[in-house]
């Protein structure tokens, strides 16, 4: 029967899930070790430093320099605001477009066209309009983040089982009931897919804008270290950004797992091994 979990596999003398996580850590450690050896004995220190030096640089200067810490906090703030705006406006626009066939046919092609534009080409325009401060970065993150949400909300509203529609109607449900009991829960998985894609793109937008124009943000520091051939703090800074990205993504994943109604566990990319819900 479909409800019964797949039998637990044993790999390398342990449950599959543990073998998977062990392998994962082994790959990371092996890569770090290779980088350490290469950085220590072979590389030009102007370009590559060993992992130990990067970790050292993370404590000092990245974490100890107040200006860098402030720049990182600023980036997190910009991402958070851009993301929040993307979600609110993306969902609102997506629902307005998805609510009728007419609106979808009229507006969606335009949205897809805008989505396809490589926005980096428009960056100077953003700087001109929003200035050099946080507003420009937020705006650029927002225009990146909003599209996947719109597109996925529209897609989620579209794929409705006509029987569910008939069921609500025949049971005497009103339009609001259709929205609450069918359209919204049906849309949830697509919406969360949109949220995850949007998270990645919002960060991309903000960081791109940071790198392009920054008078004291993380973009300024990455350029400072790169142009002074000081790769240890540069890598430490980039690593921190990556960590922030992972953190944001985990947040969305937790929300997704918690809030997706029903036994429709979202795609897990194999991250939790053989555990099935």
């Amino acid at each position: 029967m479909s409800m019964i979990d797949a039998p637990r596999e044993i790999i390398m003398g342990m449950p599959r899930a543990r073998a998977v996580s062990l392998t994962r850590w082994a790959i990371i450690l092996a890569a770090a070790a290779a980088l350490e050896i290469y950085g220590r004995f072979f590389a030009d220190p102007a370009f590559i430093r060993p992992v130990s030096a990067i970790v050292g640089a993370w404590f000092n200067p990245v974490m100890s320099d107040e200006r860098i810490f402030w720049a990182l906090s600023m980036a997190v703030f910009e991402i958070a605001v851009a993301y929040a705006l993307s979600i609110v406006f993306g969902a609102a626009i997506g629902i307005s477009i998805g609510v009728s066939n007419f609106a979808r046919a009229s507006f969606l092609p335009i949205v897809l066209l805008l989505y396809a534009i490589p926005q980096v080409t428009l960056m100077p325009l953003f700087i001109l309009i929003f200035g050099l401060g946080a507003a420009g970065k937020i705006a650029f993150g927002f225009t990146h983040g909003i599209f996947p949400i719109i597109v996925n909300v529209v897609a989620g509203m579209r794929d409705i089982n006509p029987l569910h529609r008939s069921a609500i109607a025949s049971m005497g449900g009103a339009r609001a009931d259709l929205l609450r009991h069918v359209i919204a829960p049906n849309m949830a998985p697509a919406f969360f897919t949109g949220l995850r894609l949007s998270m990645t793109l919002t960060m991309l937008g903000v960081i791109l804008a940071e790198l392009y124009v920054s008078t004291g943000g993380i973009g300024y520091f990455t350029r400072l270290y790169a142009e002074n051939f000081n790769p240890a703090p540069l890598f430490a800074l980039i690593g921190t950004l990556a960590l922030i990205a992972v953190l944001f993504n985990s947040l969305v994943r937790v929300a997704e797992r918690r809030l997706t109604p029903g036994a429709r566990a979202p795609a897990k990319l194999g991250l939790s091994g053989a555990k099935s819900k």
């Binding site: 029987l163 569910h164 008939s166 069921a167 049971m171 005497g172 429709r264």
Partner: peptide, 21 residues
């Protein structure tokens, strides 16, 4: 107009909402 007080429908089994128990 549906008359849920008098009439109930049974469609195919996929009519059950998968997001509810």
């Amino acid at each position: 107009a549906p008359r849920p007080d008098e009439i109930a429908f049974v469609f195919q089994e996929s009519t059950l909402f998968p997001w509810y128990t």
